[in-house]
Write a protein that binds this DNA or RNA. Structure first.
Lengths: 223, 223
DNA sequence: TTTCTTCGTGAAAGATTTGTGAAATTTCAA
DNA sequence: TTGAAATTTCACAAATCTTTCACGAAGAAA
C-alpha cells in the first residue's frame, strides 16, 4: 500500500512514516497541499494522511483538487480544537479523522479500517461487489466470481454463501443456518447443511478455505 | 476502573482523586515517576494520569519505562505554557493531554473518552473481544488468542472456557460445570471436568493461571 | 509424622463428528 | 407427463474428541 503523508511539520511526517512503514506500507511525503496535489497528479496512492492547517494550500482545498482527478481514500489530521466543517468534509469524501495528539495505535487502526473498507469494488451494473482475495461476490446481482470466472451456483448455494458473507466472522450452528437459510419450516436432517457446504466449497475452488468448519458446532465464513 | 494519579503536588492529587472516585473509580497515587514505575510493575491500572514535571523521574521518562512492561492508557497533565515534545509523546503512545489548571468536567471527559476508546476491542470481523492480559477471546467468532497466536481448542474446551469467562470470578463446582456445559443428561464421572481443565490449561499457556483450582469444590476463572 | 482425601496428568479405549460419494426424492418447467 | 436439475438422505471411512482409569503429587486432618 502506498500512503502519502501530507503535513508541514517534518517531525510529524517522520513519525507517521515510521508507523506506516512498520505495517509494511510504502510511505511518501508532501510538505503542503500544493505539493500533495502535484504528487497525486503524477502518482497513484492508496491513501492520503492529510493535515488540515498547512501553508500554501490547506488540507481541505488539496483534497478538493485531488478528488477532481482521482478517487482516493483520505484521513484528515486535525489539531484539537481546530474547527472544521464536517459536512463539507463528508461531501469531499473524507473517510475519517484523527485528532492530534494521536496515539500510534489509533492512527494505524484508522488506516487499516479505511483501506479495508475501500477494498470494495462495484460491478458494471453498479452493485457493490465484496471482494475476498480472488473471490468476488455481487449479492444484488447474484453473481459470484472465482478468480475472475463466473461460478455457477445453485439457488441454495447462493443463499448459503450470501448468508455466510453477511455473517462473516461469526460462528454459525447448523440449526441457525437451517433456520435462517432454509426457513423455520424446514424439518430435515442437520447434515443437509454439510452437503451444501461441500458443494459450495467445491465451487469456490481455492477459496473453499474461507468456509471454516467449527467442529462440534457448525461453520463460519472467515477471511 | 483503577486509575493511578501521578503528581508531586499533594493538592493536585487530592483534587484528581476526588473526581476519579466521584465517577466510581478506584484512585491510587504516586508522588513521582519513580514511584509510578514501581507501582506499575506490581499492579495493573486501567489508566494513568501523569504529570510531566516531577522530581526524581519526569512523566515522560516514567511513561517510557512503564510502556516497556505494560500497555496502559495515559493522559498527561501539563502546566500551561510548559513546553513538551508532542512527537515524543506521540511515539510513547500518550492518549491525551490536559493542561493545568483544569476543570473537573474536562478531566472526566478526557478520562471517559480514553477508557471508552480502549474498552472495547473488536476483531477484524467486528466481534467484541474480551481481553485478559495476553488472552483474547472472541466468543462470536469462536476464536481464542494466546499472546496473539490463535489457540486451537476442541469443542468442549471452547465451551468450557466460554462458560468460565461468562462466570468470571464465580466458584463453580464440578456438578455445576457438568450440568451447564455438558448438559443435564450427562451421567459420567466428575473427574471428566478435571481432564478438560487440564487440556484447556495446556492450551492457554501462561494464562492457565486464570483457571484457579478450588480444592474440595471445583474451579473458577479469575483475572 | 502418618493417614486420608483431592487433584494433575498421561495413556488408551471408546464415542462423535465430519467429508464425501452415491442414491433417493423433490421441484419445476416444457 | 417427462426429464433435467436441485435438494435431501444415507452410509462409510477418516479424523478428531471424550471419557475413563490409574498413579503419583499435593494438601488436609489426625
Amino acid at each position: 500500500m502506498k500512503i502519502l503523508i501530507v503535513d508541514d511539520e517534518e517531525m510529524i511526517r517522520a513519525v507517521l512514516r515510521e508507523y506506516v512503514e512498520f505495517e509494511g506500507n510504502e510511505a511518501y511525503e508532501a510538505k503542503d497541499g500544493m505539493e500533495a496535489v502535484m504528487l497525486c497528479k503524477e502518482n497513484d496512492y492508496d491513501l492520503l494522511l492529510m493535515d488540515i492547517m498547512m501553508p500554501r494550500l490547506d488540507g481541505f482545498s488539496a483534497v478538493k483538487e485531488i478528488k477532481k482527478i482521482k478517487d482516493v481514500p483520505v484521513i484528515m489530521l486535525s489539531a484539537r480544537g481546530e474547527e472544521y466543517d464536517k459536512l463539507f468534509a463528508f461531501e469531499l469524501g473524507v473517510d475519517d479523522y484523527v485528532t492530534k495528539p494521536f496515539s500510534p495505535k489509533e492512527v494505524m487502526a484508522r488506516i487499516n479500517a479505511v483501506t479495508k473498507r475501500r477494498e470494495s469494488k462495484v460491478s458494471a451494473s453498479g452493485n457493490e461487489i465484496l471482494k475476498f482475495e480472488g473471490l468476488e461476490i455481487d449479492m444484488a446481482g447474484r453473481n459470484v466470481y472465482v478468480d475472475g470466472e463466473k461460478a455457477e451456483l445453485t439457488p441454495k448455494e447462493y443463499e448459503l454463501l450470501f448468508y455466510f458473507v453477511r455473517n462473516k466472522g461469526i460462528a454459525l450452528t447448523r440449526e441457525k443456518l437451517l433456520y435462517d437459510v432454509w426457513g423455520f419450516d424446514f424439518y430435515g436432517d442437520d447434515r443437509t447443511v454439510d452437503t451444501h457446504v461441500k458443494m459450495l466449497r467445491g465451487n469456490l475452488k481455492d477459496y473453499r478455505k474461507f468456509i471454516v468448519t467449527l467442529r462440534g458446532l457448525g461453520y463460519k465464513f472467515e477471511v
